[in-house]
């Protein structure tokens, strides 16, 4: 059974420009992804979502903490690309413009699974069919520039699939696409999950899309997990004040425009201090918020807020 675990993973980047020290992008994040599970990471820009995606795919190494995949340390894992694949946000820059689509799909299959060119070609055609680009022969010889954004994102998904991964990390896969096209991509991801044992780490700023694709939602704020629970519960009964604000602010044609009075977040500068990172904007702020708060267990959920610190 596939399992990926993050155990108190922290990532710091050196600060650039006028700032000294380092920027804490991900702060002691722990989470688990099981086989055939879809987990959504939700948060605003700078909350550390993409950094977690890059840590899980080993594009970055953690500053501290441990990532394990199937009980093995991620950094020692020799076959990681056969287990974990990524779909990037920008379908216009994530395919090599020089090569035909067929090459972009066959090469990873050949290299990762040491199969013949003929077998790789068959696998590429199969993957294109799976993502709805049919008949596959019509696409194998095309170049990226001959495809629409939605088609390119389907090719990216096909490229991930030829590796036969257990986990696909999808970093805002629809944010650069039109809504109707984006919905087609989300439906494709759901179809693949129903037909196989694949798991997703789905990264989005859109709470409604998170619920659509994932059973579990993890809410990040400035690099820390503030809430984690089943999607339905997190959206219908948000516990953390930030999650409450996020739910209230998410556009919903059935609701009146909310009256949002919290101040805007200021740009993140330097490492954060020990207290709750949301306290400057929080309507429930109190003295204890200046101190670090532990994640509290509440049935199937976790929340990091002094309101629930009993």
């Amino acid at each position: 059974m596939f399992k990926l675990e993050l155990d108190r993973v922290t990532k710091r980047y050196p600060a650039r420009g006028m700032h000294r020290g380092s920027i804490l992008s991900v702060d002691q994040v722990s989470l688990q992804i099981h086989q055939n599970q879809s987990i959504a990471l939700v948060g605003e820009s700078g909350s550390g979502k993409t950094t977690i995606a890059r840590l899980v795919t080993r594009l970055e190494r953690p500053s501290s903490g441990l990532i394990r995949v199937n009980q093995q340390r991620l950094e020692d894992h020799s076959g990681l690309p056969r287990l974990v694949q990524m779909i990037f946000q920008d379908p216009f820059s994530s395919l090599n413009p020089h090569y035909p689509i067929g090459y972009s799909l066959e090469r990873p299959a050949e290299l990762l699974h040491r199969i013949s060119r003929r077998e790789a070609a068959a696998r590429a055609a199969e993957a294109l069919t799976l993502v709805g680009l049919t008949p596959a022969e019509n696409y194998l010889d095309k170049h990226a520039h001959q495809l629409s954004g939605g088609q390119r994102q389907r090719v990216n998904i096909a490229r991930a699939l030829v590796a036969r991964p257990q986990l696909i990390v999808a970093d805002e896969p629809t944010s650069m696409l039109d809504v109707s096209v984006g919905l087609g991509i989300l439906n494709l991801l759901l179809d693949l999950k129903e037909r196989s044992e694949i798991s997703y780490l789905f990264i989005t700023h859109n709470l409604a899309a998170a619920r659509y694709v994932s059973e579990r939602i993890v809410v990040l704020y400035r690099g820390i997990v503030v809430e984690d629970g089943p999607s339905f519960d997190v959206i219908n009964h948000p516990l953390h004040p930030y999650t409450q604000l996020l739910v209230e602010s998410t556009p919903d044609a059935h609701k009146a425009l909310p009256r949002i009075t919290v101040p805007d977040a200021q740009e993140m500068v330097g490492a954060s201090d020990a207290g709750c990172p949301f306290r400057a904007r929080c309507p429930h702020r109190r003295a204890q918020c200046e101190e670090p708060v532990a994640l509290q267990q509440r049935e199937k959920r976790e929340v990091r807020c002094v309101l629930y610190d009993h």
């Binding site: 984006g182 919905l183 439906n187």
Partner: peptide, 23 residues
């Protein structure tokens, strides 16, 4: 109608919405 359905709802029952085929 299709455009309205292309936005998954935040609340209420979660069900598959059809995407708009074609261009």
């Amino acid at each position: 109608r299709a455009l309205m359905q292309a936005f998954p709802p935040l609340l209420g029952p979660s069900r598959r919405a059809p995407s708009i085929e074609g261009t």
